[in-house]
Simulated assay, not measured.
Amino acid sequence: MVLLSPRQQQVLKATVRHYIDTVEPVSSNTLVQRFHLRASPATIRNAMVWLERQGLLRQPHTSAGRIPSQQGYRHYVDALLPHGGSQVERLQRELNGLGLQFQWTALDDLLRFLAGRLADLTGLLALITRPTPPTPRLRTMRLVSSGERLVLMMVDRGGNMATLNIRHPPARPQDVLLLERWLDHQLRSGGKIDWQALPSQHRGLGRPVQLAFENHLRQFPLAVDGMVAVGLGGLVTQPEFHQGRHNLRDLLQLVEERPEELLQEQPQQCSTVLGAPRLQHVSIGREHKTPTLAACALVKVPYGGHQGTRGWVAVLGPMRMAYETIIGSAHSVAAALERLLV
Rank of each mutant, 00 (worst) to 15 (best):
residue 102 F to G: 01
residue 273 V to Q: 07
residue 203 R to W: 08
residue 82 P to C: 05
residue 261 E to A: 10
residue 132 T to F: 12
residue 54 Q to T: 06
residue 256 E to C: 12
residue 35 F to C: 00
residue 8 Q to I: 00
residue 177 L to C: 11
residue 154 M to L: 11
residue 273 V to I: 11
residue 67 I to M: 02
residue 333 V to N: 01
residue 160 N to T: 14
residue 85 G to K: 04
residue 67 I to D: 03
residue 33 Q to I: 03
residue 145 S to G: 12
residue 282 V to R: 04
residue 65 G to L: 03
residue 170 P to D: 09
residue 283 S to V: 13
residue 56 L to G: 06
residue 6 P to Q: 08
residue 251 L to E: 03
residue 121 L to M: 08
residue 277 P to Q: 08
residue 272 T to Q: 11
residue 105 T to G: 15
residue 42 A to Q: 14
residue 323 Y to S: 07
residue 171 A to F: 04
residue 124 L to G: 06
residue 47 A to H: 12
residue 15 T to K: 04
residue 75 H to N: 06
residue 128 I to A: 02
residue 239 P to T: 02
residue 317 G to V: 02
residue 118 L to F: 07
residue 48 M to V: 04
residue 219 Q to A: 13
residue 26 V to H: 04
residue 82 P to L: 02
residue 21 D to H: 11
residue 297 A to W: 05
residue 117 R to K: 13
residue 82 P to W: 01
residue 298 L to P: 01
residue 116 G to F: 01
residue 342 V to R: 15
residue 70 Q to P: 06
residue 214 E to I: 12
residue 297 A to N: 00
residue 292 T to S: 08
residue 264 Q to W: 13
residue 299 V to S: 03
residue 259 P to K: 07
residue 154 M to T: 00
residue 119 A to W: 04
residue 176 V to F: 11
residue 93 R to N: 13
residue 122 T to S: 13
residue 85 G to H: 01
residue 26 V to P: 05
residue 77 V to S: 07
residue 231 G to Q: 01
residue 17 R to D: 15
residue 340 L to R: 00
residue 309 T to F: 08
residue 318 P to H: 01
residue 286 R to Y: 08
residue 12 L to G: 06
residue 294 A to I: 03
residue 244 G to E: 03
residue 304 G to I: 15
residue 74 R to Y: 12
residue 105 T to V: 15
residue 65 G to E: 07
residue 105 T to M: 15
residue 243 Q to M: 12
residue 36 H to Q: 13
residue 330 A to T: 07
residue 63 S to T: 15
residue 305 G to N: 05
residue 299 V to N: 06
residue 153 M to T: 15
residue 17 R to I: 08
residue 183 L to Q: 00
residue 224 V to D: 14
residue 100 L to N: 14
residue 159 G to N: 00
residue 116 G to I: 04
residue 84 G to L: 01
